[in-house]
Design a protein around this nucleic acid. Structure first.
Lengths: 164, 164
DNA sequence: ATGAAAGGTTCAGGTTGTCAACTTTTCAGC
DNA sequence: GCTGAAAAGTTGACAACCTGAACCTTTCAT
C-alpha cells in the first residue's frame, strides 16, 4: 500500500500518450519474454526467479518481495525449479529460519542463455539509430532511478545497500 | 539445437542496456497494472480484454489473437466478465459462427476508470521534464511503428502514418 | 449435397496466485 | 535463563489463467 499522494491526475496529453505507448511496448516485451522462456521449457515466473538469482543466492522472502507476491507462491515455483535441477535450497548459517535459493550451473546457463536470446528479440529497437538508443537509455535510466531499484532480468549493477 | 536464425546477436552494449532497462520498466508497469485492476476487482487478463473492447465489439477469435493465447482461454475470461455484467456476447449476423463480445456501459466505465487510474500510476514519468517526455514519446512511437500494430490498453490515436 | 475448414465451447491437467493456519527459529523483556 | 511475540517457510484449500485435444455448429468450396 503506497502513501497515496494527494494530487489527482494532472494527466497532460503527452504523458497520456507515453503511458499508452508504454503499455503497448510492455505487452510486446512481455510476449517475447514468455516465448523465450517457453522455448527453454520454463514458465515466465520460473524464468524471473532464475534471472533474479544471477546476482547470487537469495532468501525466499527477498524473492517474494522483489516479485511482489506472497512467499507461499515462491515455495511452489522454487519447488519446480529444484525438481528440474535449476536451483538448490541451502540453509543460511547465520539465520536458520532462512533458506537461500541458489542457481545451479544448469540454472545459470539457462538464465544466461535466455538473457541472450532476449537480447536478440529486440526487433523494435532496430528501428532506432545508435544515438537514439543512447537517448532512450538515458531517459529510461532517469525514470527508473526514482522508482523501485529492483528488476526482473536485472541491470547488472546490483543495489546492495543496507535494508533501510 | 534450434534452427538458429542466420544472424547471431550483434548485441551492442547500448542495446543490451536498453533491453535490461526495458525489462525493469516492464516489471514495474506490469505490477501497477495488476494493482489498478485488482482495485476494481478485476484480474489483469480481464482488464486487458475489457480494454480491448474500448474500440468496439470484437470476435473471440480476434481477442485471442491480439492477446496471443488460445481461443479456449478467452472463453473462460469472457464468461467471468459476462457474469459480472461487464460484457455481452452477441451473435454476428453476418457469420453466425462468430460471437461478438461487446462491453456494456458498466464495462466501458470500469475500463475508462482503470485507464485513468493507470495514467495516474505514472510515477516514473514524473522524473522527466515535458520536452523529455515528448522525446520519449517520439522514440517509443518509432519503435512500435515497425512492430505489431496491436496494443493491450490501446493507444487511443492509432498510428496511421505511411511506413515512411 | 458432401466434406473440409473455421469459430467457440468443453474437459482435463498444469502453473500461478491469494489467504489462513502451522512449524521452526530468532530475539526482546523480564 | 525462560517466556512469548515476531519472522521465515511450508502446507492446504481455492480461484484464475493457460494449453491442448475433442467436439458442435456454421460456412464455404467443390
Amino acid at each position: 500500500m503506497q502513501p497515496n499522494p494527494v494530487a489527482p491526475p494532472p494527466a497532460d496529453a503527452i504523458t497520456r500518450e507515453v503511458v499508452d505507448l508504454m503499455a503497448s511496448l510492455v505487452a510486446l516485451f512481455h510476449r517475447e519474454y514468455e516465448e523465450a522462456a517457453a522455448a527453454r521449457s520454463l514458465t515466465g515466473a520460473q524464468a524471473k526467479v532464475l534471472a533474479l538469482l544471477r546476482r547470487g543466492p537469495m532468501p525466499m522472502r527477498h524473492i517474494a518481495q522483489t516479485l511482489s507476491c506472497e512467499p507461499s507462491n515462491i515455495t511452489g515455483i522454487v519447488d519446480r525449479l529444484e525438481n528440474r535441477g535449476f536451483v538448490t535450497r541451502e540453509a543460511d548459517p547465520q539465520d536458520r529460519r532462512v533458506k537461500l535459493v541458489a542457481a545451479t550451473g544448469t540454472g545459470k546457463d539457462a538464465s544466461e542463455e535466455l538473457r541472450e536470446s532476449l537480447n536478440f528479440a529486440r526487433e523494435p529497437l532496430a528501428a532506432l539509430a545508435e544515438d537514439e538508443r543512447a537517448q532512450l537509455r538515458d531517459l529510461l535510466r532517469r525514470m527508473l532511478e526514482g522508482a523501485g531499484p529492483d528488476s526482473a532480468t536485472g541491470p547488472a549493477s546490483a543495489v546492495e545497500h543496507a535494508p533501510s
